Simulated scan of single mutants.
Amino acid sequence: MGVSMGTGSMWVERWERQQQRYAVDREERFAVIADVTEHLCAGRDRPLLLDLGCGPGSLSVRLARRLPRAEIVAVDMDPVLLELGRTHHSDSARYVDAVIGEDGWTDALELDRTVDAAVSTTALHYLPAAVLLRTYRGLADLLRPGGALVNGDHFPPDDSPCSDLTAHVGRRRAERTGAHGHADEDWESWWRAAAADPELTGLFEQRERSRSSSGGGNRHLSVDAHTELLHRAGFRHVTPVWQVGDSCVLVALKG
């Protein structure tokens, strides 16, 4: 079921282009996550990083460039994206197939020490709130004292008129930077095209068999709501460190 290097490279490159539609200032957000992670790992010889909902390794490869001595464990449940990551970004991380938030999911990571930083970008919003709280608790157990969860995602304000404003600012920012204009396909068309590639047929069959039906998600949760859940999970300090529109990097430090 392996994917050739040429096929892996093509689909990852197309993934990178279409993802520009969905994350305001995507590269800057990646850079901020790397800035925070680098700061947290200063002076540590071989930091251990956990990339949650890694997809094809977009964040992992950027962190590996910034912290070349780090060990990165990248986890996702999608066999298509995991195989593309293993093929195109094989040197960046150890890729693990696990369903984040399920009972025992952290056991599949096979970690030999505590984690310095858990990072994520546009992934944890798929978890229902109760599963998200359980996930936050599991991460608090994995992290060393002083370690952190660094999560880049969209966090709309609780107040609907304010939510409309932040979404509008994000859209206008994307228009000014030309992010939408540079992407020749969107999420749905990328998946349709990839599913038609004969080299990926077996992976898509596996994807259909393993697809989670948990549903729900937490896209409506604000920074304040996430902060409350993080405090309940054992994180002592929580703060946003960067925001454009409702795209934000939220950092939760373990005391």
Rank of each mutant, 00 (worst) to 15 (best):
Glu110Val: 12
Gly57Lys: 02
Ala233Met: 12
Arg207Ser: 10
Thr106Gln: 04
Gly170Phe: 00
Ser60Ile: 04
Cys162Pro: 03
Arg192Ala: 12
Arg209Thr: 10
Trp191Leu: 10
Glu83Gln: 08
Gly146Tyr: 08
Arg209Gly: 03
Gly85Glu: 05
Arg192Gly: 01
Asp186Leu: 05
Tyr95Glu: 13
Leu84Met: 08
Arg21His: 09
Met5Asn: 10
Arg14Phe: 07
Ala74Leu: 07
Leu200Gly: 00
Gly170Ala: 04
His226Arg: 05
Phe155Met: 11
Glu16Leu: 10
Val99Pro: 00
His182Pro: 00
Ser90Val: 11
Gly170Ser: 09
Thr239Arg: 15
Asp164Gln: 15
Asp103Phe: 11
Asp51Gln: 06
Trp105Ser: 12
Thr177Ile: 15
Asp112Trp: 09
Leu230Arg: 01
Asp35Phe: 02
Arg17Ala: 08
Glu205Ile: 01
Phe235Ala: 04
Val249His: 03
Asp107Lys: 11
Leu230Tyr: 01
Arg144Tyr: 05
Arg14Asn: 03
Gly245Val: 05
Ala93Thr: 11
His125Leu: 15
His39Ile: 12
Glu188Asp: 08
Pro198Ile: 03
Val61Ile: 13
Arg65Ser: 14
His180Cys: 04
Ser58Met: 08
Trp242Asp: 01
Arg232Met: 06
Val131Trp: 04
Glu199Thr: 06
Pro128Asp: 13
Ser92Cys: 15
Asp107Tyr: 06
Leu109Val: 09
Val32Thr: 05
His125Arg: 09
Arg65Trp: 08
Gly170Ile: 00
Ala140Leu: 04
Arg211Asp: 07
Leu142Asn: 02
Arg134Thr: 14
Ala23Pro: 01
Arg69Ile: 00
Phe30Trp: 08
Thr7Trp: 02
Arg172Asn: 09
